[in-house]
Amino acid sequence: MNEKPNLLTILDVVAGLMILVAAGLVFFYVPVEVMMGSVQKVFYFHVATAWVGMLGFLVAAIAGVVYLRKGNLLWDIAGNGAVEISLIFFLTAIVLGSIWARPIWNTWWTWEPRLTTAAIVELIYAAYLLLRQGVDDPERRARFSAIYAIFGFFSVPLTFISIRMLRTIHPVVIGSAEAASQGGFNMDSPMKLTFFFSLAAFTVFFADLLWHRIRLGQLRAEVDVLRIDSYSKGE
């Protein structure tokens, strides 16, 4: 069962190519935005990585619900993998946003709703990993982390709303004159193409990574079983 499936190899190639094409579009095809200059090009991968981050947390919550209903540990491995990948992508999105914000907002960081929520989301899912580390029994760990993934997913929108009620300067991209003054802009069609292609490319990339991560989780579970077997034989 450790043989790599052909479909996964195909997915690897497709995901890699799509990311390369997306990068190609960003660097050589899409025009430079006149108000902000080249740094605006960070936007395409910033949104795409943030999208993967949210997608992963959604997948983790769904995997949590399914695990609680079915009790198959495969869903636990999937949820854990989704959270791990999302943490990395979301952190990347935050750093990219910060790099974009430096020339545009003239600051690396501001306590703006989306940024603040993003930081809190990172903390919630870091706590998720700490919870997993603290529980040894696999069934119990799976149950607890499923519940925590579901609760985390519920609380994020409420956190966002509550911080938003305090105030916002994040650009609402497709939109109004007010948005333009904060670093928003209207996308013309090459921009839209690049934007949506990046989203698609990253979605495929996420699926690919998640598959690999699930296989790793399964292999580790097998190793754990074997290890217990060999200990009990040794005694």
Partner: peptide, 19 residues
């Protein structure tokens, strides 16, 4: 029920109860 029970509660609870 966790092994790290002395430190875990605030880490889990604070981010969830932020709203």
């Amino acid at each position: 029920q966790a092994r790290t029970r002395d430190i875990l509660l605030p880490i889990l609870l604070f981010p969830l109860s932020l709203p």
